[in-house]
Computed example of a mutant assay.
Amino acid sequence: MPSRRAVLSLLAASVVCAAAHADGGDDPFGSLQWPDLKREFFGTAKVVFDGKVQVQGPSFAEDPMNVPISLRADASLGPVEEIVVLVDRNPIRKVLSFYPQQALPSLSFRFKLEQGSPVRAFARTRDGLWHGGGAWVDSSGGGCTVSGATRKDGSWTQTLGQARGKLFASSPVGGENASRLRVMVMHPMDTGLVGGIPAFYVNRLAVRDEQGRELLRLATFEPVSENPVFSFDFPGRVAGGLRLTGTDNNGNRIEGRIEGRIE
């Protein structure tokens, strides 16, 4: 018969395991980095892996500096206030935060991947709950620790901050009335992990209507790919006169017009 101490130890272990499971310990990837990741970015907030956030990416990233990722949150979640994208095994783990506002909770973009890793998206609903999903992307590595093409040839100085966008009358998500917006910003997006090149990246982007009201907003970080392209989806037709605005971490302003008019 086990001793009283052994019984107490087993009970304590059960409590710890139960707490870990309720607090996001049921990580579908079994990642060793997940507990630290959760503590750093979510604190005491509740995180669940419930299949309502989908992340799509390549099984193997042939170009680790330009890894395509698409994500979306299921409509059953209701309004989504924020989506955070994290990469467990990148030296800089946070890729971006997306605030959909008038847009659908879906996003496509490219990022830098240092080594094979879970790539995760978490959607925060109005009740404060974070819903998580992800995809494993393998890689030959090195995406965060080498210079981009425009940094190597010096052409970034001629194109820095140039931005443009285009509206499309259809979207692969959101139903038959949905529309898509694609924007591009010219920027080297330096991670600061290459010798002699400090971190230099776009840190804020917003799409505004003719009255200057924000329709969506992004906070972006070093792992986003050079000359980033983002695709957003709207539940209906979007009027023209939209503007893309933003800044980088050195205070340079970004402004561009969006072509097309969908009403």
Rank of each mutant, 00 (worst) to 15 (best):
G25T: 03
Q56S: 13
V53M: 08
R72G: 11
A149Q: 04
F98T: 01
G133P: 10
E114S: 03
R120S: 12
F98Y: 15
P68W: 08
R72W: 14
D88I: 03
P91F: 04
A75Q: 09
V95W: 00
A22H: 02
Q56I: 11
V80T: 09
G25N: 02
C144P: 00
L86A: 05
A123T: 10
F49L: 09
S70P: 04
Y99C: 05
A20K: 08
N66C: 08
V146I: 15
A73C: 12
Q102R: 15
I83G: 01
S97C: 14
C144A: 08
A123F: 07
V146Q: 13
V87D: 03
V119E: 04
G78D: 05
A149K: 09
A45R: 07
A121P: 07
Q33E: 15
S108M: 04
I92K: 15
R93L: 12
K38Y: 07
W34F: 14
W136I: 10
V55A: 13
V87H: 02
R93H: 15
Q102G: 01
D50K: 09
F41M: 06
V55C: 13
W136K: 07
K38S: 13
S108Y: 00
K94D: 03
G57Y: 06
P68G: 10
H21T: 03
S139Y: 01
K112P: 05
G43I: 04
Q33I: 09
F60G: 02
P64L: 00
D27L: 00
L32F: 11
D138V: 00
K38L: 15
A75W: 01
T145Q: 08
V47R: 01
G57W: 04
R124Y: 03
F41W: 14
F109T: 04
P100A: 04
S106G: 14
V67T: 13
V48E: 14
G142E: 10
L129H: 02
